[in-house]
């Protein structure tokens, strides 16, 4: 079972990004996803900067994957996408069909991220024909859904043709929009956003009028209000055909999550990590995504 580190979803200062990944070189993760997937205006890190980080991680023995933008609108977005797909050094994670189009034309195999809608093995088959070699389970699907899809893939003779990754820790990216909600909260138009999202290294919390944490604003992305924590389910995943588990970088405690996962994978661990916003496990257990384990009847 591989442990992977998903793309950084927040907008951190460049120095912080570089020093974060320098630390990651020392962490026991097998595969690291790099790049800006959320907002086409966040351009402080150029492709060259990401490639340089990638080289360091690769030297440290990690597999490096470049992640692509999830919402592509303008011609300039497609030009940036082309550069990523043509990088020649690292694998690519497709987060939009535009990336699949480019990569399949060039005959380059790819991974799909958690925002990519794959709900059945017939869809997997279409994408495998285009070069998919790994997929990430969409966040809203459950363990039962996953095993049904893998069973269906088996019936279609696809079993050896792809590997499966599951997002197991982090605030879940649950929506993308044209509108920047962080700028809206600051009463700024998107075209003059002043990069206020940099003030929120773990996103801007949204509470109900009863003070329940509901969502998290991250620019044009809306995330879950609670942190997904499937560490306790990892041993069962390993036994059921999941090849890799993904941790999404948070400003604090990410290394501890990775270390805890190493224990989980080897079957010796406790999984009592907590997150200040609270944790949830609903989706994996077939419930509303926000539901915590304590409310899930066995």
């Amino acid at each position: 079972m591989e442990i992977t580190l998903g793309p950084l979803l927040y907008f951190w200062p460049k120095d912080r990004v570089i020093s974060f990944y320098r630390d990651v070189c020392e962490w026991p993760v097998n595969r690291v996803y790099l790049g800006e997937t959320v907002c086409n205006k966040r351009r402080q890190m150029k492709l060259g900067d990401w490639l340089a980080i990638g080289e360091e991680l690769q030297s440290a023995g990690k597999t490096v994957v470049l992640s692509t933008l999830a919402l592509l609108e303008a011609a300039s977005d497609l030009a940036a996408l082309k550069k990523v797909c043509d990088n020649d050094r690292f694998h690519v994670e497709a987060n939009d069909m535009a990336a699949v189009h480019k990569l399949s034309q060039a005959g380059i195999p790819f991974t799909t991220g958690p925002l990519f809608n794959i709900y059945n093995a017939y869809t997997l088959k279409e994408l495998i024909d285009c070069g998919l070699e790994r997929w990430t389970l969409p966040l809203e699907l459950s363990a039962t859904d996953l095993y049904c899809i893998l069973g269906q893939a088996d019936e279609l003779g696809l079993t050896d043709k792809f590997s499966t990754e599951v997002f197991v820790w982090g605030m879940m990216p649950l929506a993308v929009s044209a509108r920047c909600f962080t700028a809206r909260a600051h009463d700024l138009p998107k075209d003059d956003c002043q990069f206020v999202c940099m003030q929120y290294p773990e996103g801007l919390p949204v509470y109900s009028q009863e003070n329940d944490r509901v969502f998290t604003l991250n620019g044009i992305q809306t995330q879950s209000g609670r942190c997904l924590n499937l560490l306790g389910d990892v041993p069962a995943m390993a036994a059921s055909g999941v090849d890799a588990v993904r941790v999404s970088p948070q400003p604090d405690g990410t290394k501890e999550v990775v270390l805890s996962l190493v224990d989980q994978v080897s079957g010796v661990g406790e999984h009592e990590l907590v997150h200040p916003a609270g944790c949830c496990q609903g989706y994996w257990h077939g419930k509303a995504g926000m539901v915590p384990m304590v409310d899930i009847t066995p």
């Binding site: 999830a70 919402l71 879940m172 649950l174 929506a175 993308v176 929009s177 044209a178 809306t222 509303a288």
Partner: peptide, 15 residues
């Protein structure tokens, strides 16, 4: 207001 097909907020709250 979200990119259709890429919003899972409803299942986050309701399944």
């Amino acid at each position: 207001i979200m990119a259709e097909g890429r919003c899972w907020l409803s299942s986050y709250l309701t399944s």
